[in-house]
Design a protein around this nucleic acid. Sequence first.
DNA 1: CGAGGCCGGTGCAACGATGCACCGCATGCT
DNA 2: AGCATGCGGTGCATCGTTGCACCGGCCTCG
Lengths: 346, 346
Amino acid sequence: MTIQQVATEAGVSPSTVSNLLNGRNHRMLPETRQRIERAIDKLGYRPNRAARQLRTGRNTTIGLVVPSVGNPFWGALARHLESAALAEGYHVLLCNSERDPRRERDYVDELWADGVHGVVLCSSLPSLEHVMPLVERGLQLVAFDRTSQAGDPASLVSISVDNAIGSQLAAQHLTDLGHRRLAFVSGALASVNRKERYRGFTAALEQAGIDPATSVRAPVKGDADDFGDVEASELGRAAAAELLALEDPPTGIVAINDMCALGVCRGLRDGGLEVGKDVSVVGFDDIVLADLYAPTLTTVRQPMKEMAAAAFTQLRSRLDDSGPTQGQSLLFRPELIVRESTAPPA
Amino acid sequence: MTIQQVATEAGVSPSTVSNLLNGRNHRMLPETRQRIERAIDKLGYRPNRAARQLRTGRNTTIGLVVPSVGNPFWGALARHLESAALAEGYHVLLCNSERDPRRERDYVDELWADGVHGVVLCSSLPSLEHVMPLVERGLQLVAFDRTSQAGDPASLVSISVDNAIGSQLAAQHLTDLGHRRLAFVSGALASVNRKERYRGFTAALEQAGIDPATSVRAPVKGDADDFGDVEASELGRAAAAELLALEDPPTGIVAINDMCALGVCRGLRDGGLEVGKDVSVVGFDDIVLADLYAPTLTTVRQPMKEMAAAAFTQLRSRLDDSGPTQGQSLLFRPELIVRESTAPPA
DNA sequence: CGAGGCCGGTGCAACGATGCACCGCATGCT
DNA sequence: AGCATGCGGTGCATCGTTGCACCGGCCTCG
């Protein structure tokens, strides 16, 4: 099952087989070509990737580092990225960082040692310093779900939805419905994304002539360590309780993401309110569950498939070094999906 | 950054470095050893996996073929498997088959070509014939979420929860609560799992002295092509509507899995019924969402973490060929998690 | 007529790590 | 004396693939 055996079977030299395999067959007799192809079929030959990689230094594997594929949001990214990669013969090596910065760095290190030169990194960290040494050595990095920052490596590609626009759409939807008393529920605004979303929220308020100071931002036990996924919903639930205790509770709530929004819904329900009637709630991400929940959740959709495809395309063109070496930032347009959880104020 | 450079830096031969790297350092001067270790640290050397694999034929990557990591159930498996593998220095190559038998086979082929000798396969197919050729060549296969079948390769390891017991627990819980009119909601019983779950369901009915013939099995547009994940909930929703149209609707419903159960809940709610009061619903899997939904879902938990760890352990011991070559079947005990979606009949 | 070009391929030295055979010397045993 | 065995390492062929340099024969062209 080596190229040597194929060559013998076809009565040519290994080099010739290699030439065919690598598209250098412009000046090859069609007959020779067919003999080789037949031999390959007959023996069921598949090139050995290790040998190929050792020789060329190239490979067709890209790394994906996500906080956790247990979270449907990242699961969806993994699926779409893999799908885009597969179409071009690439593989995806999956790594769950579990939001642990050290694991994140170790993974990127290990990927590099494996000869993986392109990585899609979904980092929880605002700074990318921990992977800079490898970027300097030529690692191609796509940061996903993160807009580019000052201090990022020059070659970095950032892919993200436009978070500000997203939550602006969300808040605007509420003000359009007539809500005047709004709340924004999130953990600590520790990441760039979260800050952006909050910015969009306040922008929408101002546009509607509402003083943002009268709105409520409800981060609960707002520390950096609240990034988890189940925790997001717990947080929403607690925040809802907190909001209901106010003397003039908000009628419209924008949550930092869907998991959080679902928690908010649950908390409101605990407090005896009906979501989509007494109170309106908007989420962010449009995870599968958003359309299953009762009530179905109005939310801001990230165009996952397109974003994943873009991540792969960017990586690939840079790995081929046919692409630009200069970094860039791709901001995707979010879309408001209106469902049952929002309605005019009672 | 090659072993040669480390050797030069340490003033020894590459072989000696290699010996240390591979634990053949019994008769090595501690001083030599330290010199090498220092050199490794100083240069930040990491062995090149491609070269190592080419030479040894071994590698530390295992494959995971799942229908889709977009589904939280498989996402959880991916996460736990990766975690178990990482602890031993192994990597997981993720493959989404999208329930396409051809993709499934292509992936296993490709993994083999990549030198991956161990694969955890979550196949939708009752037969494993399509991968037999590779198993004969030495591919180690662990079938996950699938009990072993006649005709399976002799070396196959099967890992699954005991599906019959699981749904028996579910149905028993309902009969214990006093429900006498039960329904089982599923797509076509096309897989072994589904058949087993249905078997457990009827067994529980018989045990409770209920004639299974009076129960309802509600497969909707019951063809093989209803395996999807979003579809599962659609299916549940439609099934609920169908059940409500009966002249004597069931008061207790066992669903084939959580996604389906969530769909059922939604369908019941559409019909004006309150789940956990008017009707009881039990799911299967205990995905994250089960505890987030309103009402929270009573369900049968699969001990994912343990199952994933077992999958890795089995694979690893066979790859080291320190383990048994004989196949075996591991059935894990499911656990009933009682939450809000079940209650005595109204 | 000789230099150069075009054929359709082939030869060969790498890529980086591995692990067996083996180095030369000192000591122990018979 | 003669041989085995220990020491702490080293030399070298090898894994499968790649792609440049180059083969010898024939044609073209100035």
